[in-house]
């Protein structure tokens, strides 16, 4: 086997390994094709092109509505645990105290206020999620597959908004902390970095939106199979 062929097969194998769960089958298909292409260079070109699959982050498609209760339960547990948001939330009181106790200049005070804001955004997002799903912690709701599917769809619709608030909170914290200490950063540099961070997060938001839309559509299709009405997107 030539080096070029080895490289092509190596790339294909990595694409299969790193592909998202929903794209594994496709990555596998691409890899199998790379193995049967006669020309080594064509196989390499094919393998390089196949890396495009890595950009598509998809969940495994739903096959049956019976899978939904488990997914919903996971989502409920995840929401209840706060998924690490408490780190952002707990910073709030600390920086709020600093505003009143420390002798801060205007810029440092702005930094503290931003961290507190980030904490409030994260806290509100978490509490609202908890409140919405409060009745679903331990009841027998999960026996009703269709009701679970509807609730899961509603939650999927909220995912992009929740992610947006999480990013906003992260952004406030990431800008606020350096500002509050003013470690040699120029404010303009910080704002620039914040802008870049926010722009860099856009693909993540778009991906989340796509994935939740796919889930809603999959559930709609499964509901339609059972003769139940679909939920509007």
């Amino acid at each position: 086997m030539t080096r070029v062929r080895k490289l092509a097969l190596g790339i294909s194998a990595r694409v299969v390994r790193w592909a998202s769960p929903g794209c594994k089958e496709w990555a596998e298909g691409l890899a199998r094709e790379a193995a049967v292409i006669d020309s080594d260079w064509a196989a390499l070109r094919w393998a390089i092109g196949s890396t495009r699959v890595l950009l598509d982050r998809r969940q495994v498609p739903l096959i049956s509505l019976d899978e939904v209760p488990d997914l919903l339960l996971k989502h409920v547990d995840y929401t209840r645990s706060g998924y690490g948001l408490w780190v952002l939330i707990l910073q709030g009181p600390f920086y709020a105290t600093r505003i009143f106790i420390d002798h801060l200049n205007g810029l440092q005070r702005t930094g503290c206020i931003l961290v507190v804001l980030g904490s409030i955004v994260a806290g509100s997002s978490w509490l609202m999620g908890r409140r919405r799903l409060k009745l679903r912690w331990y009841d027998d709701f999960y026996d009703d597959t269709v009701a679970c599917a509807r609730l899961y769809q509603a939650e999927q619709r909220r995912i992009p908004a929740r992610l947006f608030f999480l990013l906003l909170s992260l952004l406030c914290t990431a800008v606020g902390i350096p500002l509050s200490y003013r470690n040699g950063f120029e404010p303009s540099t910080l704002w620039g970095m914040a802008g870049v961070f926010f722009l860099a997060m856009q693909p993540l938001l778009i991906q989340a939106q796509r994935n939740s839309r796919r889930r809603i559509e999959q559930i709609n299709a499964l509901l339609a199979e059972r003769g139940l009405s679909e939920t509007e997107l």
């Binding site: 794209c23 496709w26 298909g29 691409l30 094709e33 049967v36 292409i37 070109r45 094919w46 393998a47 390089i48 092109g49 196949s50 890396t51 495009r52 699959v53 598509d56």
Partner: peptide
């Protein structure tokens, strides 16, 4: 149809072809 045959006949690269198939 196989992916590579489709690619050869249409002139589409794997990185373009597979997202369409998906």
């Amino acid at each position: 149809r196989y992916g590579y045959d489709l690619s050869r006949n249409t002139g589409l690269k794997s990185g373009t072809l597979y997202p369409i198939l998906m």
